[in-house]
């Protein structure tokens, strides 16, 4: 089953709508609550990243029999140094993002912690693509 969500840049009042909607789907499918929590924490961190740092993007969630695959794709501006971005505490967040309670440089690390696999590719031309796999 595939679920797709468009994510608007900079709109913090809607940040989390996609994660909330996908959580409801997972609950309806009776997925283990601990696994749901891991999925939605990783997804929500990623959704907030698109809202906070990108020009906008899209989230595609695929539910398969043994895993959930999530692709978070934005349209730019890209992450210049992924290794640096993965370091806990490193952040390029604006004061507006920090006012919302984010921007501590913990998001990507937390996504990685909650996923069974995470893959990031990024360029200035194509934006950032984060793929998460969480086993069911």
């Amino acid at each position: 089953m595939r679920f797709e969500y468009d994510i608007e840049a900079g709109n913090f009042s809607k940040a989390g709508d996609a994660s909330s909607a996908f959580k409801k789907v997972l609950k309806q499918l009776n997925v283990d609550p601990q696994v749901i929590k891991r999925i939605v924490i990783a997804l929500y961190e990623g959704e907030v990243n698109i809202v906070a740092h990108s020009y906008g993007g899209k989230i595609v969630c695929d539910i398969e029999p043994k895993k959930v695959s999530i692709v978070l794709k934005d349209t730019g501006p890209g992450i210049p140094n992924i290794e640096q971005a993965m370091q806990e505490g490193f952040s390029t967040a604006t004061p507006a993002v920090r006012e919302m309670g984010f921007g501590a440089g913990m998001g990507l690390c937390n996504m990685n912690r909650n996923a069974n696999a995470m893959n990031i590719t990024s360029s200035a031309e194509d934006g950032t693509r984060v793929e998460l796999i969480i086993n069911l």
Partner: peptide, 8 residues
């Protein structure tokens, strides 16, 4: 006050 921390 930091939701990034709460999420961990």
């Amino acid at each position: 006050d930091l939701m990034s921390e709460v999420l961990t």
